[in-house]
Design a protein around this nucleic acid. Structure first.
Lengths: 368, 368
DNA sequence: GTGAAAGCGCTAACAA
DNA sequence: TTGTTAGCGCTTTCAC
């Protein structure tokens, strides 16, 4: 298999010959980590310019066993959350002269394992896994095995955890996130608070719910099972979940959704049922993706400082690949972004609920 | 620089030694393109299994000058349009045993050129550029030069064009898209149709506008400059653009937006001004991203069959990298997805506009 | 069918 | 400071 299009690829040998030096010298000016006489250096550099020579990264990677590539396995970049994290990682990587190999697993463990192998073959210096199997509350033995196979050669950093492995963990502090959300709602007078969306075998979702229960208890509010509706992470589950909740005799005054997509479904359901947001029901969510600003009303949501998150992930990955000491566990603090979808609990809401059926179709009030 | 973490990477030599064959033979069973006796073949395969051996893609790429990596330069995957196209490309690539290197340029030509170089260094087999400089109505000479430097070695396929280069073009047929939108609106009785968002030095945007004017003329409707508001591709420009249009004495009955993000701004502006969508104003857009389904009302939008688009891009890239004959220009036909944001032009709309100020806040009607 | 050997393009001792 | 040399791990003639 020879390259078909190629005219003639230029190498350090070509440069060396024309400069009248040895290939090693060319390599030296390329890597810039050895002394070369000014004259030769300039000569070589001018030739590099002249031919717009770019050293073959494959050959380089082969010889110094550093590919300068970081592999990223994401659940699905069409989900804005992952897109944000990925972009942040890519930027951080580029700043350090690294390139990024991205693949999406679509929540499919088989796929993840294939990607793991593929990236190993590509000899990425490190891998970052965003969501997926590393988000499982109890890790899958099969996946653990796979990663353990990889780990001795390539460090893996994850946004979740992987029991029994030496993966580096860079997590978002979901407890703190939930604290922000709940304390904010409590402060507005809300007590009947629902939690919609997500699967409870997912780490982040699980801990959100745990914390939710804890905080209710701490505030002397009794936990109501019917206010907690699991589902998925998309519009649909928000819509369905909220329909279910609104069928309850005692409708909550605030809803926490597992992410912005779910929030969009919740909002639509509420509006269709004649509730105004935030006057009748407050909706708050996690992730603060672009969706949060596009919806009407704009969503109050938990922001993660994606830029920093990405940087942390990448720096950890790079450091680990070089054998530099890095903490195995790191946590990012989130912050609350308040927008229009939330507001004080209104006493009037009880009375309003009684004529919700005639109130349809809904009127959405803007306050910007 | 030696690998720090590594215990001992296993190579074909290790396999060969243990199997009692030569490295060449191991290579033969790996590539599977030469005859090996069944016995040795099985012996080798079992060892590959045993050690979970994965051949070093760098070495492979070095020797056979095929990296099996495709580079993709996107404007910004946080934009759902690009995310969709990227995902489609990645899937198509994976199906063919290729891996995908992704980088985002953020509409910055400098960045694009850096990425071009970086990918060349990585010896990607081909590059796909999604948007950015290849979307310019008149290509930048600087960029042309850069790509021409690359092209002899690495084929480049683009979603736009690059004057004076041999780039492969896989485009969406925006003329057809605009036809669908306009004919649909005409069919509903709309004649006062606005066009909001986008920059007219961008290929797709430019051709949309051209076609828009042509179709108006063909239908004997006079073109009104004030109905065409340029801007950007985000929520903001939709909002601002629509505010501007709604200040006109003669408000349009339908608005075409350059994409779903712009549509979201248009919708909000309209609703804030007391217009109901679609009863008073229809809004239709291009791209049919997930945003289209999340907004209220759901957007009527032009869909591109992303899966096929991605496949076409990747197949073209791979074929080109192998020197296989492929057409230089290919076009994808879009289709119209009708949802709730558009409907028949209503005679009542004139009268409604007269009391729009007291109609605030808006009521949004659902019909699902 | 199989092994020996050269080479892909670069880096990194080791000498000089 | 600089050149020579020996790999990095794989593929691929070329003999046998």
């Amino acid at each position: 298999m020879q390259k078909p299009t190629e005219s003639k690829t230029i190498t350090i040998y070509d440069i060396a010959r024309e400069a009248g030096v040895s290939p090693a010298t060319v390599s030296r000016v390329l890597t810039n980590n050895a002394n070369v006489s000014k004259a030769k250096k300039e000569k070589v550099q001018s030739l590099i310019e002249k031919y717009n020579f770019k050293p073959n990264a494959l050959a380089k990677g082969l010889s110094d066993t550093q590919s300068k590539v970081i592999g990223i396995i994401a659940a699905d970049v069409r989900n804005s959350y992952y897109a944000e994290v990925f972009i942040a990682c890519e930027n951080a990587a580029r700043e350090q002269g690294y390139t990024v190999l991205l693949s999406n697993a679509f929540g499919n463990m088989e796929r993840e394992m294939q990607h793991l192998d593929m990236m190993r073959q590509q000899r990425v210096d490190a891998m970052i896994q965003l969501g997926g199997s590393v988000d499982a509350v109890v890790s899958y033995p099969e996946y653990i095995g796979k990663v353990q196979q990889i780990m001795p050669a390539i460090p893996v950093v994850v946004t979740g955890k992987l029991d029994g492995t030496e993966c580096y963990e860079v997590q978002i502090d979901f407890d703190k996130a939930t604290d922000f959300l709940m304390e904010y709602l409590f402060g507005l007078g809300h007590e009947r608070i629902a939690l919609v969306g997500g699967r409870y075998n997912v780490l982040g979702t699980y801990s959100k719910r745990q914390r939710y229960e804890e905080l209710l208890e701490r505030h002397g509010i009794s936990y109501r099972e019917e206010y907690v509706v699991a589902g998925s992470y998309d519009y649909e589950s928000g819509y369905i979940g909220m329909n279910q909740i609104l069928a309850l005799p005692d409708v909550p005054t605030a809803v926490i959704t597992i992410n912005d997509y779910v929030a969009s479904g919740v909002v639509r359901s509420a509006v269709e049922h004649g509730y105004r947001i935030p006057q009748d029901i407050s909706v708050v969510s996690y992730d603060n993706t672009q969706i949060a600003e596009l919806l009407t009303p704009r969503l109050t949501s938990i922001d993660y400082d994606y830029e920093n998150f990405g940087r942390m992930l990448v720096n950890t990955a790079i450091a680990a690949s070089k054998g530099i000491q890095v903490p195995m566990h790191q946590k990012m603090s989130p912050r609350l972004v308040v927008r229009e979808s939330s507001g004080p609990q209104q006493e009037a809401s009880n009375e309003r609920r009684s004529f919700r059926d005639k109130a349809w179709p809904a009127s959405v009030e803007e306050h910007s």
